[in-house]
Simulated assay, not measured.
Amino acid sequence: MIKTLHFFAFILLALFVTTKAISQSNTDDLRKREIDKTYWSEISRTVKQGDFEGYSATCHENAILVTTTGEKKLSYPMSTALARWKQGFLDTQQGKQMDNVSFRFSQRIGDETTAHETGIFYFTSHDSEGKLIAESYTHLEALLVKKGDKWVCLMEYQKSKATREEWDALK
């Protein structure tokens, strides 16, 4: 009888743990799909269309850009980066260049209103004739927060250059 009670207790505990894990997995999947739809896809769309205002709207008003990809290691307001990037958006919008960015992830942590995403972004820029003028793979971390019904960036950390092989490994 005691063995039977222990067995049933074990089964109930296993079912509870499994149900909890499935529930967390479903919550994580829902958050990732929501972020993909309302943040990462929006970033890609705005870069491709040269929509500077749309891109700016994906950033929290106090967002920070950290970059250690060049010789200097820098941290500054995203508004400063946006001012520097604006001409590229305008050139894309006017058809002077064609830009694209896509993302792949190695780690995605979060809850209903916060997320820390780690991965690589792949950026390309072509001139109006289709000639490649810029291409880069960059290790990325992003700290996101949900404001209302959309996700916005609090911090983007462009860590280091990545390789095509590292990008391919994240398929």
Rank of each mutant, 00 (worst) to 15 (best):
K48H: 11
L154I: 03
T38I: 02
E141F: 02
S136T: 15
D168I: 05
I109E: 13
K96E: 06
A57F: 02
T46N: 15
D149P: 08
H6R: 09
F103D: 13
K131R: 08
F8N: 11
C59I: 10
S136F: 02
S25K: 10
G50K: 09
M98L: 07
T92Q: 09
P77R: 01
R164T: 09
D168K: 13
E156W: 02
K32Y: 11
K72H: 11
L170N: 07
K171C: 02
G88W: 10
F8V: 15
N62L: 01
S75F: 01
L170H: 05
S79D: 10
I64C: 02
V152W: 04
V66S: 07
K86T: 11
R45K: 15
D51H: 07
E53D: 14
S106Q: 10
E129G: 00
G88T: 12
A115N: 06
C59V: 08
R108I: 05
M1N: 07
D91L: 03
S160D: 08
D36C: 01
D51K: 09
R108A: 01
T67P: 14
Y55F: 15
M78G: 02
T80N: 09
M78F: 09
L144Q: 06
I22D: 08
E156C: 02
I120V: 12
F52S: 03
A115T: 06
A169D: 14
M98D: 09
S25Q: 12
Q107E: 13
K161R: 13
Q87A: 03
T68H: 04
S102V: 03
E156L: 02
G119T: 10
K131M: 01
D127S: 01
E61S: 10
H60K: 07
D168H: 08
S106H: 05
T27S: 04
K131Y: 04
I11N: 08
T4L: 00
T67E: 09
S25A: 13
G88M: 03
H139E: 11
D111R: 04
Q93A: 14
T80S: 08
Q93R: 13
T163P: 13
T58W: 00
D28M: 04
T67A: 02
G119A: 01
K48V: 11
G130D: 04
D91M: 06
E135M: 07
E53Q: 12
E53H: 06
S136K: 11
Q87D: 12
I35P: 15
S79H: 06
Q49K: 12
E61G: 12
I2S: 09
R45E: 09
A57S: 14
I22P: 01
K3D: 11
V101M: 04
T69H: 00
V145Y: 03
E117Q: 05
E117R: 03
E71R: 10
T80C: 00
V152H: 06
S41C: 01
T58D: 05
E165C: 00
G148S: 02
T124N: 08
T124S: 06
Y39D: 00
K3I: 08
H6Q: 08
T138K: 04
T118V: 08
S23D: 11
N100S: 12
A81G: 07
S160K: 14
S44C: 00
L13R: 02
Q107H: 11
S44Y: 00
S102Y: 05
E34D: 15
G88N: 15
I133D: 11
E165P: 10
K32G: 00
D168F: 00
